[in-house]
């Protein structure tokens, strides 16, 4: 009879399993952190909460998957996607966001809702709303600390956190980053001192969308891509809120908190409450510290 002699499930050392779990959580948290960093960057420069981050990510994931499926090498497909992301960011900024500067926060929020639902439609029209799998860049497994890890998972975790580091480094160590921080602290003073606010905010959007594109691509490497996957944007937003909307450190800690809480509930408790765990965590934190773990208290008054 078929399958009679097949091994009945894996028997692996406990240590390997825990390292594997760690890689998984780090990969997921890295993707959330990447998206959340983009949300924080846009918030810091323009005080707009971007609810479309997940949509941007998955749109780019669909795009790169379409290019790869059409036979392009990933070395061509990835830059093309980043370029499309940059154009998308510029369009969003100049066509919408720039026109509502100075409006109440309500307007900015609704504008991103509008963009989000528009992008969702574009996704369905352009890619048919189907569920797709992307060919992974790496296959096989890597041995790390005595554990057999999926090469893709390692790649996702490493790449995501590396990119988060790059974005934070841009903000902290380059002159553009200095302008961005100046804009965050005081827009009017920064403008007076010759910072081109227009360009800085546009650049923030470009970086945010590129981060989303990278996050979407990495998501497609380890999971399926479908219109339902736009929910990773909600997880990223929750991460940013837990950490504090204006803090990169907060976004990183928040992403870890969201990923760990989701994972922990799914693995050890009733799986059906997995989606609620990060939400509950966020509510608790926002009730105690409305400005988030690392945010500035004054931000709550602004938006």
């Amino acid at each position: 009879m078929l399958g009679a002699g097949l091994p009945a499930g894996p028997v692996r050392p406990a240590q390997g399993a825990s390292i594997q779990q760690l890689t998984t959580v780090l990969g997921v948290a890295g993707i959330y952190a990447l998206l959340a960093t983009g949300i924080v960057l846009v918030y810091r420069t323009s005080r707009v909460v971007n609810l479309a981050q997940g949509h941007l990510a998955i749109l780019c994931a669909f795009f790169v998957a379409a290019l790869l499926a059409a036979g392009y090498h990933w070395a061509a497909a990835l830059p093309a996607t980043i370029a499309v992301g940059c154009v998308l960011a510029a369009v969003i900024y100049f066509a919408v966001m720039r026109r509502i500067v100075g409006e109440p926060p309500f307007v900015g929020l609704m504008a991103t809702v509008g963009i989000a639902i528009l992008l969702r439609g574009v996704m369905v029209v352009a890619f048919g709303g189907v569920t797709i799998t992307t060919q992974p860049l790496l296959s096989g497994s890597v041995s790390l600390f005595g554990a057999d890890l999926s090469a893709t998972h390692v790649l996702v975790a490493v790449a995501a956190w590396l990119l988060v580091g790059v974005i934070v480094a841009i903000n902290h160590f380059t002159s553009i980053g200095l302008f961005m921080r100046a804009t965050t602290d005081n827009v009017i003073l920064a403008a007076q001192r010759g910072v081109n606010i227009d360009r800085i905010v546009c650049l923030a959007w470009v970086i945010a969308v590129c981060a989303a594109a990278a996050g979407g691509f990495l998501h497609s490497q380890r999971a399926l891509v479908s219109t339902a996957a736009i929910l990773i944007g909600v997880s990223a937003l929750i991460a940013a809120l837990i950490g504090g909307m204006d803090s990169f450190r907060g976004a990183v800690i928040g992403a870890l908190a969201v990923a760990v809480s989701e994972y922990f509930v799914l693995l050890h408790f009733e799986a059906r409450y997995a989606d609620l765990a990060p939400v509950a965590l966020m509510l608790v934190i926002l009730t105690i510290r409305p400005w988030g773990l690392f945010g500035t208290p004054e931000e709550v008054e602004r938006v």
């Binding site: 919408v96 509008g114 639902i117 439609g121 369905v124 352009a126 709303g129």
Partner: peptide, 14 residues
Amino acid sequence: LNGIHSIAYGALIL
């Protein structure tokens, strides 16, 4: 169709 409806909602909001 779903996409067209979505685009219509989003475009109207914006």
